[in-house]
Design a protein around this nucleic acid. Structure first.
Lengths: 346, 346
DNA sequence: TTGTATGCGTTATCAC
DNA sequence: GTGATAACGCATACAA
């Protein structure tokens, strides 16, 4: 079972393949780079021998000379948060299909991201970086990226000056939340809800702030007054406590719009198991995200949905476009939201 | 467009730092490798200049010559499956602290893993690989790993010949499930359960087979006869359907032991919302994993727990031990389970 | 179409 | 303790 070159441990190298195929080392390199010119039969031969020897080009070496690591850094505060884990999953699959690998970096859950982590990350030379964190300014991030251009998932505010800034360069996925929120409020209104409470997410989060502002505007447009804001941080436990407080200490509400699905679960459990209220008869509940659990019978949650697959496609497209045109000005993609109606409003 | 030597785009190199600090390029390299000998003041100076220039050693170049990529490959079928996402999260944090980055690879959910993915992964030259998949034999995996030694999470069977095999070399984390299962069955027995059903996980899964066998043995030892096996695949939906079938078509049960927590959630929802049975009065339920959701009020699940932190520590220890002794024989670590008692048994 | 020569940024091996 | 020099494995400009 031993072969010339002995690839038992320590991988086969291009040189070994070249030797066995009676070609030059360069030919082997070319065989693995589709756009180069090489006689088809020769390429075929080389690829066959390579397979025999279990040879794959070393990406570290390739990265060194080509300046492409084929690594995409993903910075997350929490891998196991439901929405993010679904997004990482889909993103990894999509990137894999394009020949990239996902490199995971974890920040602290409080959204802080120190320069040490950034410097550490840069050492791996990612071709691109997707930041799920929101507290780090592009200006800071860019310093640590070498040639990579960061991608931000952006939740545009109402009335915000949105002209792209030239410096520093970063690409954006703009997620417009208006449609879904408007549909949700219309549904609530149609079922007679008057007093709507908004269970906030982390106050630092742009996604949260944007949701709250949009909700405010939509309700105003529909002549429904102001939503009552109750404190939250995207977690189940806080949502649970806040809901109990809203009804035990505060004035209660006809409907609760939660900043995310997991928070909505906490709301539901508090309403049903602690406050003995019926959903949707006594209180209606709407979430945000449409994570996989939302269709579970315990929750059966009406929620504002992102299209995950479309979202991932946008991100991958941004990466590829940027790699094809490293000097292009700021790139953008756009995504919308829509309402998924289940059992918690009615 | 941009000026070379300027750290704006295109990172600073060791040479630039050397020039600015008036030292040799080699000194810069040494400054970043703690165990090398360098006059402390000199090291300090270099590190300061490096910080000024935002310099970090390029890991691709370093990997090329040192043979260490500081990349740990993690192969998962499903990032968003609850237990795995928690494990990936903890693992990434732990690895990051040791200077490694997590490289994510996704297999198909059906546990298949083709050689194309393996070859692809190997190109990145991971220092170590942790396989959460169970259908790939070490013998196959090793072919694609170069110098890395794979780590398997192993669920030893009862009465299994467990002498480590010399060839191929791989390291193992042995998870003994007996303690937790025994405690769970004792609790069920203490509360008078006689007919226990086991909601199976994927039948191909070693973890599942081991759980089932251990449950069988524990029940036999306690004079409780055989468990009834109902089909499952670790998902909520299948668990839900199987539970309904068990009571509508089959004979029902006093208690259901689910192969994982998510399955147990499906069981709970089916019992309460579809079959109008009370838990734990009519039917008792036990899960496996103790994921974060299990303490949620909707579920409040009694479950067999792995200690996640301990598990991650074991994995990291295996990686470090192996890197320190690449030629050592098969390494092992051991982990136990225990019962977490909540509200679904009583 | 093919081969030769060079360089990518770093660490290891020697000398001193 | 320090510096020159040689790898590491690959891709590309250039010459043939």
């Amino acid at each position: 079972m031993s072969i010339a070159g002995e690839p038992g441990r320590g991988r086969a190298t291009a040189e070994m393949v070249a030797a066995k195929a009676n070609v030059s080392r360069v030919a082997v390199s070319r065989a693995f780079n589709p756009h180069t010119s090489l006689k088809p039969e020769k390429r075929e031969l080389i690829l066959r021998i390579a397979k025999e020897l279990d040879y794959t080009p070393d990406r570290a070496a390739r990265a060194l000379v080509s300046g492409r690591s084929h690594l995409v850094g993903v910075i997350v505060p929490d891998v196991c948060s439901h929405w993010e884990s679904q997004e990482i999953d889909a993103l990894t699959t999509a990137l894999q299909n394009e020949g990239f690998a996902t490199l995971l970096f974890k920040t602290r859950t409080d959204y802080s991201m120190d320069e040490q982590l950034l410097a550490y990350m840069r050492g791996f030379n990612p071709d691109s970086v997707i930041a799920f964190v929101e507290n780090v300014k592009p200006k800071t991030l860019v310093r640590f990226l070498g040639r990579a251009v960061p991608i931000y998932v952006n939740y545009p505010f109402e009335n915000e000056d949105d002209t792209p800034v030239a410096e520093p360069l970063y690409d954006r996925l703009n997620v417009f939340q208006h449609n879904g929120i408007d549909q949700a409020v219309a549904l609530l209104q149609g079922f007679g809800a008057k007093r709507i409470a908004y269970l906030s997410g982390l106050s630092k989060s742009r996604a949260n702030v944007s949701r709250e502002r949009t909700l405010r505007r939509v309700m105003r447009e529909r002549g429904m007054g102001e939503p009552q804001i109750i404190p939250g941080d995207f977690t189940y436990d806080t949502a649970y406590r806040s809901t109990v407080d809203l009804f035990r200490i505060g004035q209660g509400a006809d409907a609760i719009f939660a900043a995310n699905d997991v928070g909505a679960f906490g709301v539901l459990d508090a309403l049903r198991h602690e406050l003995n209220l019926r959903v949707p008869e006594d209180v209606k509940v709407v979430g945000f995200d449409d994570i996989a659990q939302s269709h579970w019978k315990s929750f059966n949650l009406t929620t504002v949905k992102f299209d995950l697959d479309e979202r991932v496609r946008c991100l991958v497209r941004l990466i590829l476009r940027r790699l094809n045109a490293p000097d292009a000005p700021s790139l953008e993609e756009t995504l919308n939201t829509r309402l998924v109606v289940r059992g918690t409003v009615g």
